[in-house]
Amino acid sequence: MMLARVADSLYWIGRYVERAEHMCRLSDVMLNATLDRTEAATQVARIALAAVGDSDAEAQNPYEAALALVLDREDEGSIATSLARARENARQVRDQITTETWERLNLIYLRMNDPNAERTFREGSQAFLHDTIADLHLFKGAADATMSHGEGWRFLLLGVYLERAQLIGGLLEVCFGEGRKRPITDHFALTSLLRMSCALEPYLRKYTADMQPRFILEFLLLDEDFPRSLRYCTAQIEEHLASLSRHFETMEATGPDRLAGRLRARLKYADMNEVQAQGASAFIASILDEGANIHRAVYENFVAYPLEQRLPA
């Protein structure tokens, strides 16, 4: 059975790495939108900023906001901060991960902390962000290809998919929630939303060029095969938790595996007509709440549990 501190570190490596990748993609799409002077481009920038929790999205300069989001080491939510925390967690469990995964994560960290990082970003922000995303993909690939697929790997992937579900859910809430003054209908804005979710090409293969808000919402919520849909993420969360739970005989009745199983079933059997009748905002909010409950249950059962629960009688 894995030590709680080790499980905690691996879980947070997964969450921080996924968060950094998502923020890179939002920044890239936002900066691309600034090249266009239309109202739709302005809308895209506002969506990206709102999705990262910027309550003053209307007043922000997109370029300076992206620069801060990438390199501001004082900002708790910046990419540089996420990668620094991922690397620190990896350092603490260096014996649990492979050389290939450590070297890749360390390389990204060093690039972010290079004294010339800001100048490099200003000279070519798109290349900087694309290189970071590519290296994060290589980190995940190295973990999959070189780590034993046991408890440690599952905690790492559990963090990845829980973070991904919360981030995609948050993006959908910004775009389709009750807080929107008017629905997104512009082709450029809808295409940018798909790019933020790394979903443009998979969506086009399924729906061709029919950019309909309902279809986009359905794809990102309920598609069975797309690895960033909420349905796919919850299926992976349930799978990893079910495997991990077999190592813990004293798992509570409301353990994270049961919560994840219920959420997986809810999304598996959800119907888009019912979702829209209920209200997309309410449905998305409930999914985000259940994800937060799973996170708390993970901590209660795997990390912050009372010691006597794990001692033999």
Rank of each mutant, 00 (worst) to 15 (best):
A285E: 15
L244P: 07
A235D: 14
P213T: 00
R246A: 09
D210A: 07
L263M: 15
A270T: 08
F219Y: 01
F226L: 06
T208C: 03
L241Y: 07
T250D: 09
F226D: 02
F226E: 02
T254W: 05
L259W: 01
M211Y: 10
L244R: 05
D257L: 03
S245P: 01
E218A: 03
E224I: 02
S229Y: 12
M211G: 01
F219H: 00
E224P: 02
R266K: 15
T234M: 11
R246N: 10
S286H: 14
S286N: 15
Y269P: 06
S243L: 12
H247V: 01
A235K: 14
E249R: 11
D225I: 03
L220Y: 04
C233P: 09
E224S: 11
D210C: 04
A265K: 13
R266E: 15
T208I: 04
A209L: 03
T250Y: 06
G261C: 08
Y269R: 11
Y232W: 11
K268W: 07
L288I: 11
G261A: 07
R246L: 12
D210Y: 06
A260V: 03
S229G: 08
D225H: 14
R231H: 12
F219M: 02
Q278R: 15
R214L: 02
R266G: 12
A242N: 05
K268C: 08
E238C: 11
A285K: 13
L230H: 08
L267V: 09
S243A: 12
Q212W: 00
E239M: 13
M251Q: 08
A260H: 01
Y269M: 09
Q212V: 02
Q278W: 11
S245D: 09
A270W: 10
Q278C: 13
H240R: 12
F219G: 00
V275T: 12
E274G: 08
F226N: 00
M211Q: 02
L263T: 09
A209C: 00
S243Y: 13
Q236N: 10
L230E: 07
L244Q: 07
I287P: 01
L222D: 10
A285H: 14
M272T: 03
N273R: 03
F248L: 10
L288P: 04
E274V: 07
L220D: 04
S229Q: 09
T234P: 05
L220M: 06
M211W: 04
L267S: 11
Q276R: 12
S245L: 03
T208K: 15
Q236R: 15
A209H: 09
L241D: 07
P227Q: 14
R266M: 15
L263I: 12
D210W: 06
A282F: 08
E239S: 14
L267Q: 09
P227R: 13
M211H: 06
D210V: 06
L220A: 05
A235H: 13
D257V: 04
L259G: 02
S243T: 10
C233W: 09
E218K: 00
E218Y: 00
A277F: 06
D225Q: 14
Q278L: 15
Q236E: 14
E239Q: 13
D225Y: 11
Q236I: 06
A253S: 10
F215G: 00
L263E: 13
D223G: 05
L263A: 14
Q276P: 00
S229T: 12
G261R: 11
A209M: 05
E274R: 15
A270G: 06
Y232K: 08
E218P: 00
S243M: 09
I237S: 05
